[in-house]
C-alpha cells in the first residue's frame, strides 16, 4: 500500500537507556539500535543506517523520507519542569487505537476510576476541535472534566482543563491544568512506535511541575494510568482503527476522535487503519 505512513519520525528507544543494544520492529521491519562514540546508530537488518533525531528523551528514526523536522513542544523547555522518562509498554493493538484512546476523556470514570474521573461526574461538555491548517495538527481545546483527585495533596475533586494536540499520526500531547502553577500547563505525551499494524510499543513522556513526588512516583503514576488502558486496547474489535464511518458510533464527546480519524484519512495515513467496514 502506498501511503505517507513511513515518512514520519517514530520513537524507537530512550536516550537514557544505553545499557544494551536494542533489536526492535518498525513497520514490520527489524531495526537495531546501538551506541558508539558518535552517538546512537539505528540500522535496518541489511545494515543500512537510518536517520536519527534525539528529542524529548527519546531516539527517533524514520524508514521513509520525512520532509519535515520532528515537531517541537516549546512549553516543555520552560525551566523548573521534571522531564520524566516513563519507559515503554507493548500493546497488541493498532498504534492508532492507542493514540485515539489517549485523546478520550469519557472513559476516565470507568477505567481510571477515582484517579482521573468518578461516577456520577461523567458528563462531557462541548469543547472545541479543529484541524490547524498551517501546522497540519489536530487540536482540542477547552476540554473540561471532573477529576476526583487532581494531585496528591489535593482534597476533593476539581474541574481540570485539558488541551489535546496531535502533531504527528502516532503522537499526542496533552496539556493539563497544573495545580501548583495555575498559569502553566503540565505536559503529558504519548509517543507510539508502530511495530506492526496490530502491535505497538507506547512511550509516554512527561514534563511536569511537581516538587512533591519522587521521579519513581511520577513514573509509577503514568505507568499505572497507561496499563489501565492496555486491557481496553487489547480487547477492541477490530484491533485496527476503523476510519470509515459506520463500524463505530461516535457522540459529541468523541469530537476529537472524529477529527483525528478524518485527519488520518486526509493525510493518507493507512498503517494500522481499517479502511473498509468489515
Amino acid at each position: 500500500m502506498s501511503d505517507s505512513s513511513k515518512d514520519h519520525w517514530y520513537p524507537v528507544g530512550l536516550l537514557s537507556d544505553i545499557y544494551t543494544p536494542r533489536q526492535t520492529l518498525l513497520f514490520d521491519q527489524e531495526i537495531s539500535l546501538t551506541h558508539d562514540d558518535t552517538g546512537f546508530v539505528v540500522k535496518k537488518s541489511g545494515g543500512v543506517s537510518l536517520p536519527t533525531i534525539e528529542r524529548f528523551g527519546h531516539l527517533w528514526t524514520s524508514l521513509g523520507q520525512p520532509d519535515h523536522d520532528l515537531f517541537v513542544i516549546p512549553e516543555a523547555d520552560t525551566p523548573g519542569r521534571h522531564l520524566v522518562d516513563v519507559g515503554s509498554v507493548k500493546v497488541k493493538c493498532s498504534p492508532l487505537r492507542a493514540v485515539e484512546n489517549f485523546l478520550d476523556i469519557a472513559h476516565f470514570p470507568f477505567i481510571h476510576t477515582d484517579i482521573l474521573g468518578a461516577e456520577p461526574h461523567t458528563e462531557v461538555d462541548r469543547y472545541k476541535v479543529e484541524i490547524r491548517e498551517g501546522v497540519n495538527e489536530v487540536w482540542a481545546t477547552k476540554v473540561k472534566f471532573f477529576q476526583p483527585q487532581a494531585a496528591k495533596s489535593a482534597e476533593g475533586g476539581i474541574i481540570t482543563e485539558y488541551m489535546y494536540r496531535v502533531p504527528a499520526p502516532t503522537c499526542a500531547v496533552l496539556y493539563k491544568t497544573c495545580p501548583p502553577r495555575p498559569k502553566e500547563w503540565d505536559i503529558i505525551t504519548l509517543f507510539v512506535q508502530p511495530l506492526t499494524e496490530e502491535w505497538c510499543e507506547v512511550w509516554p513522556w512527561m514534563a511536569l511541575y511537581d516538587d512533591d513526588s519522587t521521579m519513581a512516583e511520577m513514573v509509577s503514576f503514568q505507568q499505572l494510568i497507561f496499563m489501565q488502558d492496555r486491557s481496553i486496547l487489547e480487547n477492541q474489535i477490530p484491533l485496527k482503527l476503523p476510519l470509515d464511518p459506520g463500524m463505530e458510533t461516535p457522540t459529541q464527546a468523541d469530537m476529537t476522535s472524529v477529527a483525528y480519524r478524518r485527519w488520518l484519512k486526509r493525510i493518507g495515513y493507512s498503517y494500522g487503519a481499517q479502511m473498509v467496514a468489515a
Binding site: A106, I111, Q236, I237, P238, M247
Partner: peptide, 27 residues
C-alpha cells in the same frame, strides 16, 4: 455480540447493573 457499537470494546468485560449491561470502557 461481544462488541459495543460505540468503540468495539468487548461487552463481556462490562458490568451488569440490574436489568442493563454496561460497557466497561465508557459505561
Amino acid at each position: 455480540d461481544d462488541r459495543c457499537p460505540h468503540r468495539g470494546m468487548r461487552l463481556s468485560h462490562g458490568f451488569v447493573r440490574g436489568e442493563v449491561l454496561a460497557c466497561v470502557y465508557h459505561g
